[in-house]
């Protein structure tokens, strides 16, 4: 659904963008996702709920449940790592955008893209270490998870969280989630989350707002 773009508006935006020196928005409170890598059955109800919510065709996947498996028969293991956009404290996508279409919300740190400014150059897609931005060829824009801002603003939770049959996916203020201080069904009693798991890009790159309960084979040494 490639829409007519307002070229003048985009040119002005590029001009504005060139003038600006980027300093990351420091949100009043940063929301983030938490996911239990072991207890997740990998059903992908969250993915489908997301696609339905956002009207995506096959192809772009805002949320991706990744299956990890290993070992040698019969000593095998498997777990899931479930990510969408990590709404990073220092989003790598944001400064790459030539039109300034990507922005971070002051109130809750949600990173969003204004598609009316997006020209589909896909620089953000290349910059993101987590594969969050998704190119939508029919519309020639890049889109991604915006944590269902409409639901958040209505006082509810995003579609993926509300879809989770095992109640292992949740959102919350990320600092409190990391500290184990935010009540959430993602954690079993006594469990503490971590900020990163194996094979994930170094969180120091962008400071992603994500918490995991790792599998024993997925723990960082």
């Amino acid at each position: 659904m490639a829409e007519e773009k307002d070229l003048d508006k985009i040119k002005q935006a590029v001009k504005r963008r060139r003038k600006a020196v980027y300093t990351p928005v420091v949100p009043e409170m940063q929301l983030g996702f938490i996911h239990h890598n072991v207890d997740c059955i990998g059903c992908r109800a969250c993915e489908i709920a997301c696609k339905d919510k956002n009207g995506l065709a096959a192809g772009p996947r805002f949320r991706r449940v990744m299956y990890v498996e290993g070992g040698k028969f019969p000593e095998v293991f498997a777990y899931k790592v479930n990510m969408s956009c990590n709404h990073c404290a220092e989003p790598a996508c944001l400064p790459t955008c030539p039109t300034g279409a990507i922005f971070k919300r002051k109130k809750d740190g949600i990173v969003d893209i204004d598609s009316t400014l997006c020209i589909g150059c896909r620089k953000c897609e290349a910059a993101c270490p987590y594969g969050a931005p998704q190119f939508i060829p029919e519309e020639n824009v890049v889109s991604k998870c915006n944590m269902c801002v409409d639901e958040i603003d209505a006082g509810r939770k995003p579609y993926c969280v509300m879809a989770c049959m095992m109640r292992v996916l949740d959102i919350g203020p990320i600092d409190k989630l990391w500290a184990g201080e935010h009540p959430t069904t993602a954690l079993a009693p006594g469990e503490m989350p971590v900020k990163a798991v194996k094979n994930l890009a170094d969180p120091e790159l962008t400071k992603p707002s994500i918490a995991f309960v790792p599998h024993s084979k997925g723990k960082l040494e």
Binding site: M1, G55, A101, D112, I113, D114, S143, N146, V149
Partner: peptide, 15 residues
């Protein structure tokens, strides 16, 4: 479509 311009991911109306 007019309303949808405000945000990237609101091509659909809110619930």
């Amino acid at each position: 479509v007019k309303d949808a311009k405000a945000f990237a991911y609101e091509p659909y109306p809110r619930d």
